[in-house]
């Protein structure tokens, strides 16, 4: 009987689980947290900047959040700059860009089975950083 108790005690042992293949599911598959723009005028530079941010955020969400779930809170240009991942107006110095497999020399992201991101997406990210107000 003592052995049975020992077995039960052993099998109740557990510990925290802070990452696996599903850790980032919530950030990858839920709605965008970017605050709405105050303007809807396509000619308004603020609105153009907002659109670029939303487009880029959605690309990063699709391509990167599976592993980089912590980036989901970066919902403004300033937060991306403060994170150190983006150098304003300088995509080549931005690790968000130069770690990509699309970059020359190629980086290692997205990792694993994910190939380089589509060229259109890559150019969207580059344009977003280059034109940041």
């Amino acid at each position: 009987m003592n052995k049975v108790f020992l077995i039960i005690a052993f099998t109740l042992l557990s510990s925290c689980q802070n990452f696996n293949s599903n850790s980032a599911d919530e950030s990858r598959f839920s709605e965008s947290p970017i605050p709405a723009s105050g303007s809807n005028d396509p000619n308004d530079p603020a609105y153009q900047s907002y659109v670029k941010l939303v487009k880029s955020y959605n690309i990063i969400k699709t391509r990167c959040f599976q592993c980089h779930s912590q980036w989901q809170n970066l919902n403004s240009n300033q937060k991306w700059i403060d994170s150190g991942l983006v150098f304003k107006n300088n995509p080549e110095s931005s690790s968000l860009i130069n770690r990509l497999k699309n970059f020359d020399p190629p980086g290692d992201m997205p990792s694993g089975a994910n190939s380089a991101i589509p060229n259109d997406d890559y150019l969207t990210l580059v344009d977003w950083i280059e034109s940041m107000p």
Partner: peptide, 22 residues
């Protein structure tokens, strides 16, 4: 922590039960 999560604000290494079963 998985290599892809090492940079930036990231999950941390941990100690955990890999398996426990009867």
């Amino acid at each position: 922590a998985p290599l892809s999560q090492v940079s930036g604000v990231s999950n941390k290494d941990s100690w955990r039960s890999r398996e426990h079963y009867i």
